[in-house]
């Protein structure tokens, strides 16, 4: 969890994504190739971290790009953030997979799908994934204590609910909720300090 993508972060800037999105909406196959070259590795890295299986991760990465390709019509090319959308779709595919394997059907499964609608990925910060911001998040992660870091990882990379985390960690639900909320607040505070509004 300590390594980053300094080179990829630079590529993840929104610069150039607008034109790419327009070409994707025109069903330009070369645009799909460029989208994959830009975001494929980072999406795959996220998925493989979640499912921990190279072959399954490749299937889910393919599904991620299929979903993005098929839903481009709903994406706002002028205001949209392609990278954030691709990563969100990738995470959701991987979490859905984990849930299906574990037989976990949760109420918030629908919620995950709702948060990957292309139309919501508009007006995100232009340099959202530049390296400064990403390093700031890393710094924030290092400020979390072990429990706080663990609950964020269980939530983000395993898709566990707070109740499921409490069971796994053998801790009271209220304690787990406190860890989650405190961790998120620390992360947000660090990011806000890094990029003042």
């Amino acid at each position: 969890m300590t390594l980053f993508f300094p080179l990829i972060f630079a590529a993840l800037d929104a610069e150039g994504d607008r034109e790419l999105a327009v070409r994707l909406q025109r069903r330009d196959p070369q645009a799909l190739a460029e989208l994959y070259d830009k975001y494929g590795r980072i999406a795959f890295s996220l998925i493989v971290r979640i499912v921990r299986d190279q072959g399954i991760a490749e299937d889910l990465t393919q599904e991620t790009f299929l979903r993005v390709w098929n839903r481009m019509a709903g994406f706002d090319a002028e205001r949209g953030a392609l990278g954030a959308w691709v990563l969100t779709v990738a995470r959701n595919r991987a979490i859905d997979y984990l849930r299906s394997v574990d037989g976990r059907t949760r109420q918030n499964a629908i919620e995950l799908t709702a948060t990957e609608m292309p139309s919501v990925f508009v007006d995100l910060e232009a340099n959202l994934m530049n390296s400064d911001r990403a390093r700031q998040l890393k710094a924030a992660f290092e400020k979390l204590n072990e429990k706080q870091r663990l609950v964020i990882e269980l939530a983000y990379f395993e898709g566990l609910s707070q109740t499921e985390m409490a069971e796994r960690m053998k801790q009271p639900l209220g304690t787990v909720k406190t860890w989650v909320r405190t961790a998120l607040q620390i992360l947000r505070n660090e990011l806000e300090e890094a990029v003042p509004a």
């Binding site: 969890m1 795959f44 969100t88 890393k138 990379f157």
Partner: peptide, 18 residues
């Protein structure tokens, strides 16, 4: 919130697809 979530997605170590 989506911004924070997307950045979290960049934390895993790089992995190389085939």
């Amino acid at each position: 919130a989506l911004e924070t979530n997307a950045i979290l997605g960049t934390l895993p170590p790089p992995a190389e697809p085939s």
